[in-house]
Computed example of a mutant assay.
Amino acid sequence: MDAITTLGLERPTGDHQTAFNTIADLADFANSRPTIPEQPIGERRNYRTIWISDIHLGTRGCNAGMLIDFLDHVDSERMYLVGDIIDGWRLKKKFYWPVAHNDVVWRLLKRARRGTEVIYIPGNHDEVMRQFTGLDFGGVAIRRKAIHETADGRRLLVLHGDEFDAITLAHRWLAHVGDVAYTLLMTLNRWMNAYRRAFNLPYWSLSKHAKAKVKNAVEFISNYEEVIAQAAGSRGVDGVVCGHIHTAEFRDINGIAYYNDGDWVEGCTALVEHFDGRMELLHWADEIAAREKARPSVKIAHLAA
C-alpha cells in the first residue's frame, strides 16, 4: 500500500506524481538523496530522547525549512513523532507537497535507518494511520500510545492528546470549521514573516501571540492541560507528553509532570530528554536567531586575530 492510498487521496499528476511515488516506496526513498542536502555539522547535539509533533506536512503553514535545520543539528537514541505529522485533512481538500516536505520525510526515515528508535503516534489530522497501529513502516513503529521511561526512572505516558479535546470528540464539524479559521490565521502569519525576513528580522508567530492574548483560548489550553494530566495520573504514571494544541509547556499539575512538545507551524519547538533524565524545551526559532546574531562577532574575532 502506497502513501496516496493510505491518506485516501486522489493520486496527483505531473511533478506531484513523481514526488509522491518517491515517498510511497519508503525503502528506496530512505536510500535516495534529499533535495536539500544534510548540513555538514561538526558535532550534532546528542540527546537520549526527542519528541516532536504537529508538523502538518502538506500545508503551507508547515515550517519545513526550520525543522530540517533542527534535524540536521540534533541526534538521539529515541524519537517520538507525537501526531499530526502529515495533515490528511488539508491534503484531502487541496494537494500541496513541496520538495522540502519530501526532505523532512527523508530525514525521519534516514534517522530510523541509522539506528534511532522512531515511534510514530498518529494524531487527529493523520488519524488514518491509526489503522496500522502495531506495524512498522521503514523502521518507524506505529503505536496508539506509549509509555516512556526516563533515565532517572520516571514513567511518562506519550500520546497525541486529541482524545481529551471535547471539540474534536463531540463536535467534529466544529473542529473542521476551526481548522479553516486557523489556516487563514497561518496565511497572515506567513505574509507577516515574509515581510520580517525582508528586513532581516527573526521569525515571530502571530498565531502564538494571539492565543496568549485571547481569554477563551487561554482558558481552553489550561482546561486541556489539567484534564490530560488528571487522566495520566489515573493511569499510575509520573507524567504525560502530548501535542495537539500547538502550545509548548512544561509544568507540574497536582504532582503530575505535564509536557507539551509544541509544534512546527507556530512555535517550532521540540521536547528533549538529556542522558540524566533532565527535560528541556527547545525553541528552534530562538536558536536560529541566536546563531545568526553570533555570526558577525565570529567574523570580527577572526579578523582581529
Rank of each mutant, 00 (worst) to 15 (best):
L174K: 10
A170F: 13
A198K: 11
S207P: 03
L201A: 13
F199A: 05
A170K: 11
R196A: 01
W204Y: 12
L174N: 11
F199E: 02
Y203D: 03
A194M: 08
T168E: 05
K208L: 08
R172S: 06
H176I: 09
H171V: 04
S207C: 07
Y203G: 02
H171M: 08
W204G: 09
L184W: 09
H176L: 12
R196N: 03
S205V: 05
K208E: 10
A170T: 13
P202Y: 01
L169H: 02
Y195I: 14
L185K: 05
L201K: 15
Y195A: 15
R197V: 06
F199P: 00
S205F: 03
M192A: 13
W191I: 04
N193T: 07
R172K: 10
M192H: 07
V177P: 01
L174F: 07
T183A: 14
T168L: 04
M186T: 08
N193V: 09
L201C: 04
R190T: 03
R172D: 01
L185P: 00
N200P: 01
A170M: 10
L185E: 07
L184D: 06
A194C: 02
L188E: 01
A175E: 08
S205Q: 06
A194Y: 02
S205G: 14
N193L: 05
A175Y: 10
H171N: 08
W204L: 14
I167L: 13
R196E: 04
L201H: 13
W173C: 01
A181Q: 08
Y182A: 15
R197S: 12
N200T: 04
K208C: 04
W173P: 04
T168F: 12
A175V: 03
Y195V: 15
N189I: 00
Y195H: 08
R196P: 03
K208N: 13
V180H: 07
V180S: 05
K208F: 01
Y195L: 15
L184Q: 08
R172T: 04
W191F: 14
Y182D: 06
R197G: 03
S205K: 03
H176T: 11
S205A: 14
M186A: 08
N193W: 03
F199H: 10
W173S: 13
Y182V: 00
N193H: 07
R196I: 02
D179E: 15
W204C: 11
A170H: 11
F199N: 05
M186F: 00
T183R: 12
A175W: 05
A198N: 06
H176F: 07
L184Y: 07
R196M: 03
L185H: 02
R197T: 11
L169F: 00
H171S: 06
L201R: 15
T168W: 05
L169N: 04
